[in-house]
Design a protein around this nucleic acid. Structure first.
Length: 521
RNA sequence: GGGGCUGUAGCCAAGUGGCUAAGGCAGCGGAUUGCAAAUCCGCCAUCGUGAGUUCGACUCUCACCAGCCCCUCCA
């Protein structure tokens, strides 16, 4: 049974969908006024994983991520850059989509834009006015927070504690905590016709209108960064609930925020003895200059970032820094190393293994071999962790045990001997019972890593560079082999240590020497 | 001031009212290796502090200490 932590109740609750077998998920996406930063990827990566897991568990899932393409910041950019808001939005949406793709996020079903839902937004606003929850005032429309007795329940605050936006609009409001559903346009600002004159939607109303349009009045999961809880989600919740007179969302999920740090230590828990390094900390924000994610991905690879994010529970605060990233890279090497070994032995690519797509299908994979029994136990552990509020960190831990079991099996049965089999003899490899067992067990691993959206295809960069390098390496390896054949180990070691210095690792396996470049960058 | 979160080994990080407190990185010892690398085996924490509840707490309660986030735009 799946359980998840609901921000609304501050408890882990059993997962029961509104409609049996179906799940609707709404995740708050970015305002596309500048390039995205790594923080924007946390929600998408975890929800991409959640969706994969839910599908695997037998649900039919619809996932919506909105794009906010009209808002004050966009207007600010329009003025600053002298380009129409729509062009900026388009440019930054492309940037966002590229980043998502690089991190393996491809499960989103709908990406609605605010500007394409104006009728729904206006209708929603009218409805709130008609029901007495909102009022028009000087071309603006505000939600009256005093009309909603449960206002503030998500963050457990009183309406009085909310500051509201103040500023120029303050004089038009009844209460300082009231927030805008519709904002009148100043000259030169993008605007749409409405019953209250030309203007644009407030920040929160689009999510209420679009989630209603695509997922219905009550849907299952609403996600977003912790920083959106106040006031964005609080206001969304108030609008939708007052408009429909029924709960908007069953489960509110909030992911923790990333902080930036170069060589940062852990956050908290250091008490008196070990204060946070000075270069750690600092929140990520575009207004604070964060961005350039595309470059970062190019430097680190999307898979490493995805793995890094999934290592930790989604609700934790995480410091995004080189220490953690390097550790993630080393961890990934264990997996990549095994995948290569697996290929040499079995002649099959891990990335091509056809694994069970559903839990039920996977349950039916059984075997009496000790390896398979062990692997099934690890799989069960893995799924138990995922069932428990999508504990990807705990689940990944099981994967390391997986790799160890697999390597051990290969060691104990000396399966590396198959690496030297010539292509015309592959038949005997395929027929070998132990190889078959290894393939079967590895397929179970594949089943699980696919769910995390990891190791879906050949790693982007494992060995380095241009076409000349392999040829040069062959030469070095050959020279070293000659030296070693003559017991001239000094020369052999000289070659190896020299290569190590420039980042190339040599591995002497039975009969052959392999080399590896790159690794962590 | 108000609302929340966190504090587990050198570092990162799961988890539980009572079996040996996951896993990773680093380190140490061993198998293997000409030596390495890779792989495998083993070692490495009493869970911020104090008090309470309990037969029993790291896990529950309270206090304290430390850190972080939100209450302004923010994934």
């Amino acid at each position: 049974m799946i359980r998840l932590y609901n921000t609304l109740t501050r408890n882990k609750e059993p997962f029961e969908t509104v409609v049996p077998g179906k799940v609707g998920i709404y995740l708050c996406g970015p305002t596309v006024y500048k390039e995205s930063h790594i923080g924007h990827m946390v929600g998408p990566v975890i929800f991409d994983t959640i969706k994969r897991f839910l599908i695997y568990s037998g649900y039919q899932v619809t996932w919506v991520v909105n794009i906010t393409d009209v808002d004050d910041k966009l207007i600010g950019q329009q003025h600053e850059r002298g380009i129409p808001m729509s062009e900026i939005a388009e440019e930054m949406t492309i940037d966002y989509l590229n980043n998502l793709r690089a991190l393996g996020v491809d499960q989103i079903d709908h990406m609605p834009k605010a500007t394409e839902h104006m009728p729904g937004i206006i209708e929603f606003t009218q409805s709130l006015i008609a029901k007495g929850f909102a009022y028009a005032s000087g071309g603006d429309v505000f939600f009256d927070v005093t009309k909603d007795p449960s206002y503030g329940k998500l963050s457990n605050r009183n309406a009085e504690d909310q500051q509201g936006e103040g500023g120029g609009a303050a004089s038009k409001k009844r209460n300082s905590g009231d927030f805008a559903l519709w904002k009148s346009a100043k000259p030169g600002e993008p605007a749409w016709d409405s019953p209250w004159g030309r203007g644009r939607p407030g920040w929160h109303i689009e999510c209420s209108a679009m989630s209603k349009a695509l997922l219905g009045e009550t849907f299952d999961i609403h996600g977003g960064g912790l920083d959106l809880m106040v006031p964005h989600h609080e206001n969304e919740l108030a609008q939708s609930q007052c408009c429909h007179d029924k709960p908007m969302v069953k489960y509110w999920l909030h992911n923790g925020l990333l902080r930036k740090g170069e060589s940062a230590g852990k956050i908290g828990g250091r008490s008196d003895r070990d204060p946070l390094p000075a270069d750690a900390g600092g929140k990520l924000s575009r207004s604070g200059g964060a961005g350039g994610l595309a470059d970062e991905i190019a430097r680190l690879t999307g898979e490493r970032i995805r793995f890094f994010l999934l290592r930790t529970h989604y609700r934790s605060t995480v410091i995004f820094g080189d220490d953690g990233l390097e550790e993630a890279a080393k961890s990934l090497e264990s997996f990549y190393g095994y995948f290569e070994r697996f290929h040499k032995i079995s002649k099959q690519r891990y990335f091509n293994l056809a694994a069970p797509q559903t839990r039920k299908e996977g349950d039916s994979v059984k075997g009496d071999e000790p390896l398979l029994k062990g692997v099934q136990q690890l799989r069960a552990n893995f799924l138990e962790k995922m069932d428990d509020d999508f504990n990807t960190g705990g689940a990944i831990a099981e994967l390391f045990d997986f790799i160890r079991e697999l390597n051990k099996f290969a060691n104990e049965n000396n399966l590396d001997r198959f690496a030297e089999v010539k292509p015309d003899e592959f038949k005997q490899v395929f027929a070998d019972p132990q190889v078959k067992t290894l393939v079967k067990a590895t397929t179970v691993l594949r089943e699980l890593t696919l769910m995390l959206g990891l190791f879906r295809s050949t790693p982007a960069k494992r060995s380095g560079g241009d076409s000349l390098s392999p040829k040069l390496m062959d030469l070095f390896v050959a020279l070293r082999a000659e030296a070693r054949a003559k017991k001239d180990f000094a020369t052999g070691d000289r070659i190896r240590s020299g290569l190590t210095e420039i980042g190339v690792t040599l591995e002497d396996k039975k009969g052959v020497t392999e080399w590896r470049a790159g690794g962590s960058s």
